[in-house]
Write a protein that binds this DNA or RNA. Sequence first.
DNA 1: ATAGGGTTAG
Length: 636
Amino acid sequence: MIKRLPPPIQPSDQEETGPTGGDSWTTRLRALTDAGRHGEALALLHRMFRPPNPPPDASTLPAALLTAAALSLPSAAAQLHSRAISSGSLPDPFVLTALLSSYSRLSLLSLARRLFADVFPSAPAATLVVAFNALISGHARHSLSSAALALFRRMRRSALPFNAVTLLALLPSCPHSAVPPLHACALRVSLAGKPSVANCLLSAYARAGAVDAARQVFDEMPNPKQVISWNAMISGYAQNGLAPRVLDLYREMEQSGEVEPDPVTLVGVLASCAQLGAHSVGRRIEHYIAQNPAYGSNIYLKNALINLHARCGDLGRAQDIFDMMQERSIVSWTAMIAGYGMHGHGAAALQLFERMRADGIRPDGVVMVSVLSACSHAGMTDKGLEYFSKVERVFGLIPGPEHYACMVDLLGRAGRLKEASDLIKSMAVEPDGAVWGALLGACKIHKNVELGELAFEHVIKLEPMNVGYYVLLSNIYSDAGRLDGVARIRAMMRQRGLRKDAGCSYMELEGSVHLFMADDHSHPQARRIYEMVVKLEALVKEACGEEENKKDELRNEKGKILPQTGFHSEKLAAAFGLLNTEAGREIVVIKNLRVCEDCHLFMKVVSDIVNRKFVVRDASRFHHFEGGVCSCKDYW
DNA sequence: ATAGGGTTAG
């Protein structure tokens, strides 16, 4: 973050004592461009071409070209290209490479390729290696990964050696299948041990979903490992949703005493804490950050903390951090909007979004997902439709499958299933699993077997190993009394080796985590907890029996009087919370799956009977139970 | 002087 900036240009050295040697031009241009001071860089560039300064030559052209690219000035690059030809400095490897690189950065790949073709027959091998690297990296940057690989093959056919830079250019964007062969190439020429290459290989494996291969690369690195290697492994796990492994590795990093975590480490760990709902670990990191003055203004860390608190149930703390930020990025706003959305505060989310726009921030696709999903969770169907219609028309964004998934969810929850499936039919892009999954979820809520079967057919083609979808259709059948359907899905799952995810809930107490599985007796307090659940269930039954309206509600929601089995994990966690916290304290429970209707009703009634607030995060959102009602208004 | 590794939000 902290970079030493070049001194501002003094008026005194503007004309008379301007830089004369190429070295001075180069260093100052580079420094200004690196610091993002493009205006000053441009002024300097203009001066280079004005007498009495000598015209740019091989020593100053590369820096000038990179400045032109950084300024997005294709005309300037072309002018410098002409200058390179007229001054005869084109065969210079540095000038050639800078030209190739600038054209690539300016998205003028065809010009880069033409120039390369011109010099290819006559350039010496050493020049060609670097030129190939520049061209490969240009194609890779534009995600033309197969073109980049084709260039690599051509490089090798030309009997040219490749080096670390070649691999570093290829690996970040290469197709998954190319990672192992590139790894083999690296091993063959003894480049795989070079830290930069190893880090890059590790990340490439992680991106390909091969976390174990990534881990092997990590483990084979000599100790002490660089902080960047730790970070690459941590973010590799994080990107693959393996939050528990992130926390394990972070602990290992701390215990190794090799390196101090840096902000990048902490951002990765905080993201995993947020995913897990591991509030106490997250708070410990927050404390650590607060003790390091250099981290105080890091916007990535602040954004990660907003996300942490919002996802762990403390919206107030998230809002405080957001309010105290001096500078906010669109990520800060998105984290906050998504936070309000998942807690069911749709109006607050929309208000924040409008404030963001008033602040002059142009919405992107991600913030729109948060906005639409906030509308969906709050039951604000018309608002959601209104904002969806603005995605393209007003904000100039192309709606992706993720936006359609939100809309199908929004319409579907509201019972507008016909409109939801018409919307899918109208999509210009191919619907993904989330789109059909949203329709399937809506069919579960509104008990629509036929449409549910259709959605299932589609979703299962796209995500055959996603257990949740099988369970959803099975539950649709079960609600409809279609036991044949239930059996069919069960057989399908068995055949594919899929097992229902076990439900688990946990709550944190004084920094330690208490985990509960459904019908699980392993907790030291298990006896007292089960007694408590049984007692509470009796009270719930009694309360519902006494009040006519609640009894009706029971019948409406479930179609039968009360649950016969009562030991879902969230009930155990809630009972544990009641047994171990003082009156008045909010009980926060994190659950891996969605809350079932039985438990939802249980929590509502218990919150009233014992006069306690329960905050439950399930797989789709937060539920705040208080005084017999839930913040989701039974709409989840 | 030219080619270049890890990071946030759904």
